[in-house]
Every structure is written in C-alpha cells, then in structure tokens.
Design a protein around this nucleic acid. Structure first.
Lengths: 243, 243
DNA sequence: GAGTGGTCTAGACCACCCC
DNA sequence: GGGTGGTCTAGACCACTCT
C-alpha cells in the first residue's frame, strides 16, 4: 500500500530497522537518549505502529535499543549501570561479581601490522593506539589487556584522559569519542604465560592462561577495537551460554 | 488476582509458550516432528493466531522450535544436518569446519560424587554413566571429553550402541533415549595437561589446554549432562559472540 | 489450489511512569 | 490525565511448499 519505496524485496520492518540504524550511525540519537515514540516513528516512516514495533523489537533483541515501559525506548549505553559489564564474561568461581578496577600500564602510538590491519579493517601502517592495562578483581590482578584502536577515531587520546575517567573503557570510548561498541566476537585459546605477563599477574612464567582475542564492532558492523586479553583462571572462569 | 506486590501478571502468549513446552516435555511432539499449525493451536488454546505466533516466535528464538515457511513449525532436532554441531564452538583457525569424528575410550557406571550430583541435580550416590572419548578433526585428536549422565535416563546404554551410532552424541541421546538437549552453560579455564590426557592428545604433559565444563539442559531447564572437555588449542579456537 | 508461515494494518485495552 | 511501551485481536494479503 504505502508508498515510495519501489521494488524492494525486504520486509518493511527490516527497512525501518535499517533507517533507525542509520539514524544511530548518523548520531541523531546518542547512547542514553530516548528515541521518538513508536507512534512518532510510525508517522515519520508512514507505516503502522506494529511495523515500527517489530523493527524496534529486533534492535532491542540485539541490545542496541532498550525498551522501558511507560518511559520510552533508549539507545543502549555502556555508561548505564546495567550494561557496564555487558561484554565481560569473566566471573569469580565463588561469590559475586565485584566490578573490576583498571590499572593503565601504557598508551602508545603504533602503526598497524598485518594482524591489526586485518582485524580492524584498516591499511597496514595506519595509525593505531595501543593500550595496555591490568584488570583487578578485589585487589587481585586477573586480566592483562592489550587493546588496539584506530587513532583516526580517537584523536586526542592521552594517558591522563584514561586515568581520570571513572567507568568502563567502553563507557569512556562512548562518552569521549562517540564510539559505541555494540557487538563483539571472541576467539579463545589456552597459552603459557610469558615472563612479562606472569610478572604482572603474580604468576610463574609458563602458567596456563586464557587468551581471549576480541574484535568489537560499532553500528553497521564496523570493527573498531581489537584486543588480546590474558586471563588468570585459577579462581575465575570465562562463562558463556548457548542454545 | 495477584497476591504479592511483585508483578504476578503473565501475558497470554507466555502461558501459551508454557503449554507448548509442556507438550514437548510430555513427548506429544518429538524432535523432528511438525507441530500443529498456528491456526490449529489457536483453536485448541482459544486464543488468536497472533498470540500463538508470539509464543512460537519466542521458542524459535531459543532454537527449540524451527519455523519453515510453507511447511510448518518443527521441533528442533540434533539429527538435522543444520544443528548437528549446534553446541560445538571449537573451530580450526584456518580452513573450514570438518565434522569431527569420535573415538570412544570408555563407558563406565559410577556413583555421583558431590560435584556430579550438584551439577546434575541428583542425589550423591545416584547412578551415572561416565563416557570418555576423543574428538578428532581431520584425523588429529583435539578434544578429550569426560561426560556424565544420570543412568536413570539412559537405561540400557552400552558401548556397542555408542560405537555403532553414526552422528553426534546429542543426536544419539535424542533418538535412542528421547533426551533432547536444548541449552547449555559453559565455564572455561586454562589448565595444564595431565600426563594421561597429554598422551591421548599427543602433547607434552603440562601443555596449556582449554578446560570447558558444560552443563546441558533439556525441556524445562532440567540438567541432564555434565561434561568436562579438554581442548588442545594450538590450531583451534573456542569461538563465541556477544552483543 | 490448498495449506503453511510471514507481513502489515488498525483498533481496543492494559500496565507503567511522571506530572 | 496523558504519555509511553505491552498485549491481544481480527482480517487482508503475500511468499513458499506440496500435490
């Protein structure tokens, strides 16, 4: 019935989903913002409320939007308490999950090597930042992270900014640089600790560590972070679920 | 109405979902079967087609049912080619995923110790089977599995049945014993290989291995399998995604 | 053509939140 | 009270599969 879009094989709600995503990419609504109500969006896109609803349902299922009855639909943010550890799958074997604290080891500028370039989908030699840090749980160092991000997206990043920020790294990226992480893929191996990392984690060199390689994506499935985490799993485990 | 201040309200589609799940538990429809059409179910439960649809949508999102346009809605089965490796998250770093082949090491009857009993939600001392096997990828042993299942659900299990079955273990459990695995939780650590496991996997003792502890559940979130996999990750990785 | 799931719409009403 | 999302319904039509 309606209207303008001509010979499109995609369901309407899928097109609406894409339009909403484009508004997110364009920054029309930022993490934490309310987006317009279903009725407003239905009017804007000239479809029924039910169709908008289905598009939003799909985005909510991907944790890109968050619905709150009576209040509205919000853009997911890593700054919200509820999702500050959304991507952290390491849990203590006993007791509850204290929020980890971060200790910055170094921030350096580098040129992308083959691996970084391929993971981040940039040219070899492109400028990247490399962040090294330790994550402490209850005062104990558990994870050694080495984080690579393209410098073009994080202009002006320096050590002080990182140290002065309270909150998760993704919350930092989001609020200071407008880069929102919405999805990640992880490849996990077991490796022996190098003497350097063993020293940081208070272990003997050669101890078994979990090596978690992550590529994180922002809106539109664009890779914007590659990190390698080395995790000490004597009293912690990497937890996941499947169905 | 509601007795407590907490939201006691259950949407209709949620009740329908529960009714459908109960039919699955009761075995009214078995893995691979078509379930009645949306219209038939709507008539049976005296609700609209849309409400049945929403219940089925939820079950399809959990991979419990599978919708096929023009054909009907089917109970998910591990015997289908599409889902025979649904729970296998280990992939080669290069090349494609050959289906693994399994080599049975032993099948023994045991009594549940504290750990098995707690994971499987049975009494300490209850009868359980313990299956040990190796998984080979392209002729190379990669995973050593130690699988515990309550013997009451698998009466008559013997080595010959396992050896003669072609297909995945979960397909075997499903078709021979009517036990369908629908969900699993995994806890992962890095450990050093024991001499026994190192021997099976062709490694030196002390080599780092991924230790994957899994509890698998059937309909109604009932735990029915506990396994410990030890995985050699030199050329393979455990892959997972998050959002 | 008949039957299935898939899309889209429109309207009524409910539950929740805030003014 | 008036806004938001959440549920439920009913009906029309589309896309796919099988006979």
């Amino acid at each position: 019935m309606s209207s303008i879009a001509a010979p499109n094989y995609r369901p309407l709600y899928d097109q609406i989903k894409i339009l909403i995503t484009q508004s997110l990419v364009a920054g029309e609504w930022k993490p934490g913002d309310v987006i317009p109500s279903e009725m407003e969006l239905a009017n804007r896109f000239q479809v029924s409320q039910g169709t908008v609803r289905k598009a939003i349902d799909a985005l909510a299922a991907e944790n890109i939007l968050i619905r709150r009855q009576g209040k509205g639909t919000f853009v997911a943010s890593h700054s919200q308490e509820r999702s500050s550890t959304r991507f952290l799958r390491v849990f203590p074997d006993t007791g509850t999950h204290d929020s980890p604290s971060s200790h910055l080891l170094s921030l350096t500028r580098e040129r992308a090597d083959d691996e970084s370039a391929s993971r981040l989908d940039v040219r070899v030699g492109a400028g990247i930042f490399c962040i090294k840090r330790l994550l402490f749980f209850g005062g104990v160092p558990v994870i050694h992270d080495e984080i690579h991000i393209p410098s073009i997206l994080f202009k002006g990043l320096d050590e002080g900014m990182i140290r002065n920020f309270t909150g998760s790294l993704y919350s930092f990226f989001e609020s200071r640089f407008g880069v929102a992480m919405i999805r990640a893929e992880e490849h996990i191996k077991a490796v022996a600790a190098s003497s350097e990392v063993a020293h940081h984690l208070g272990l003997s060199p050669g101890s078994p560590l979990l090596r978690v390689d992550r590529v994180a994506f922002t809106y539109g499935d664009k890779p914007v972070e590659w990190r390698r985490g080395l995790c000490h799993t004597n009293t912690f485990s990497y937890v996941t679920e499947m169905s």
